[in-house]
């Protein structure tokens, strides 16, 4: 049996291990499981980055369609990731700091951090600076749905808030309470 890489119509290339039937079964042997989990978490994050997916939930498992079906389901070998398996993968992502539970106090849905919060903070700062919007008040909506598509298009509000918190920590932003969800003012770098 030959295991091949497969390129999806979207241009994303699945690794050859994705065509290994047992890749979709939660392995029991610790060493094997560690390898499998490592491959899965890497695949989830790189696919999320490619497809700009921010959330992953246990509900995404075992579906033949949906945003995650391309990687959680392999129609060529009729195998799919089962919910319990996905939940444990999600737990690993959280433990590695590559995701966090959102909303908190549950373990079924996460926000994925294929960029760290500090990286998102930098992206936000660079974007504001490049578009000449430093020192002005920006609403969340203006950041999330800019007229010109940006790296930040579609970023979920909780993630954006955390990125802003990171900027505030380095004294480069200020949150402004407002009527419509609030806004943020980003200062020119003091460094």
């Amino acid at each position: 049996m030959a295991l091949r890489r497969r390129t999806l119509p979207s241009g994303f290339t699945l690794p050859s291990i994705h065509s290994l039937h047992p890749f979709f079964t939660h392995q029991t042997v610790p060493t094997t499981l560690a390898v499998q989990t490592e491959h899965w978490t890497r695949l989830i994050l790189s696919y999320a980055r490619h497809a700009r997916l921010f959330t992953l939930g246990v509900e995404d498992a075992d579906l033949k369609t949906g945003p995650w079906a391309d990687i959680l389901y392999n129609p060529e070998i009729a195998r799919s990731v089962k919910p319990a398996h996905l939940e444990s993968l999600i737990a690993t992502l959280v433990a590695q700091g590559k995701a966090y539970y959102d909303p908190p106090k549950q373990t079924r849905t996460v926000l994925l951090l294929w960029r760290t919060l500090d990286e998102w903070a930098e992206v936000l700062f660079t974007w504001a600076s490049d578009t000449g919007q430093l020192n002005t008040i920006l609403t969340f909506y203006e950041i999330q749905e800019p007229e010109l598509k940006s790296e930040l298009s579609g970023i979920p509000t909780p993630l954006l808030r955390r990125a802003i918190q990171a900027l505030i920590k380095s004294s480069r932003a200020q949150l402004i309470d407002g009527t419509e969800g609030g806004g943020v003012r980003i200062f020119a770098s003091t460094r």
């Binding site: 091949r4 890489r5 690794p15 050859s16 039937h21 079964t25 392995q27 499998q36 799919s80």
Partner: peptide
Amino acid sequence: WVDEQDPRGLVYYVPSVMVWEDD
């Protein structure tokens, strides 16, 4: 590695005798 999703029952895969395309 073990595959639990095969209708035949548990199926074992031995990666060392399989041909892998390089990633």
